[in-house]
Design a protein around this nucleic acid. Sequence first.
DNA 1: AAATTAATGTTACACTTTTCACAATAAAGA
DNA 2: TCTTTATTGTGAAAAGTGTAACATTAATTT
Lengths: 214, 214
Amino acid sequence: MISANRNIRRLLRYRNSLCKMQELGFETVYSYNLGRETGVSPEQVRKDFSQFGIKGNKKGGYNINELLITIREIFRKDELQKVIVVGVGNIGNAILQYKGFQKNMIEIVASFDIDPTKYKKKKLPVPVYSLDKLPKFVVEHKINTAIMTVPERVAQDVADLLIEAGIKGIMNFAPTVLKVPPHIHIVNICIGHELESLIYHSLQMGNNGRGKGS
Amino acid sequence: MISANRNIRRLLRYRNSLCKMQELGFETVYSYNLGRETGVSPEQVRKDFSQFGIKGNKKGGYNINELLITIREIFRKDELQKVIVVGVGNIGNAILQYKGFQKNMIEIVASFDIDPTKYKKKKLPVPVYSLDKLPKFVVEHKINTAIMTVPERVAQDVADLLIEAGIKGIMNFAPTVLKVPPHIHIVNICIGHELESLIYHSLQMGNNGRGKGS
DNA sequence: AAATTAATGTTACACTTTTCACAATAAAGA
DNA sequence: TCTTTATTGTGAAAAGTGTAACATTAATTT
């Protein structure tokens, strides 16, 4: 079977680099080019492609255009993927403002919050609704995926609500491990932990402060 | 040696759960409790602890207070870690507003942007400086870690600037693989890719839309 | 005090992912 | 056309990570 996780992530990185290369006018790419650009070994690049049935030319490398088409097919970029945001706080806001999703056939179609003062919020590209309206909206608009940017303390409850409404994938920004049925997909993004982990590794590495002082 | 990456991340999750348990008045915890809360197997919990030299009691489990102290020691929570944010756009803003770092001995002490209109920005808890001021600031305040929330197209240049200034760890929100010397630590957070990956897996899983229609 | 029990701590196994080595092959050159 | 060459494609080895089994031990019970 295909579907690992790592491959998928790398595929997205490849796509990024490939787009840039295409813009620069390149037509073909070698595994070691793409590897260098994406921080992946050439063997890994070839293996990933091979795994997804992508063929190159024995001496001419891979055709960038074909690669991009195939990658888009893998990610089903023929249909627009509709996503909602739940929790219009700092991060929720930032995500709503972000313009980069559209080009990858993803559209944030609505947002939800408990706080009524948010409902009138202008300057947002999508409406903010009450949480009550969520279940109906999800069903009617056939939403599968939600970005959840709510306070930690309500994260589990909101997740339950989302799943009950029929959501299949949740991107969770709260530093909580959500308890969900096995068929639900969760991606946890915990900026705080990432930062602490980074600091930890930087400290490990050696001279904390500059120079050898202190 | 200790220092894997996965362990560290799990340790942070443990800490989260342990704090909650402590607030609820618990004094000890068993590996399977903590495992259940954090989505980790009990064996893994024990192994992680063992790896960091944390000892439990043969029948009474682990002492929550000791655990927390040890974990804090591992992460060097005796000293405040100062961090800067570079790029005060949507996400940069959100991160600057976020209040949760303080409790883990992390403080965002300043932010930087090229856009002069940002410098006067009130409602931010830290000042926004010109990028010119960055090198001196980093040296004077002994900053090791930066959160980089700049547009993709300038990400590499800003990273170079940061490293030149003496930054050892960068949290990068642009979907680019930064080319950096080996002693520099990078954490990439690419919300777009995470979202696409999530959608991919959700689609794989089965009935895209609700019911069996279409 | 001895036996039982319920947990930890650790060693061995299994699985996953990456790297390595090299076979296969199409293009380029002689 | 034959040889060389530069690249892909892949099977095997290695490294990394998680799981399972079990040995160990301190508290509890008898």
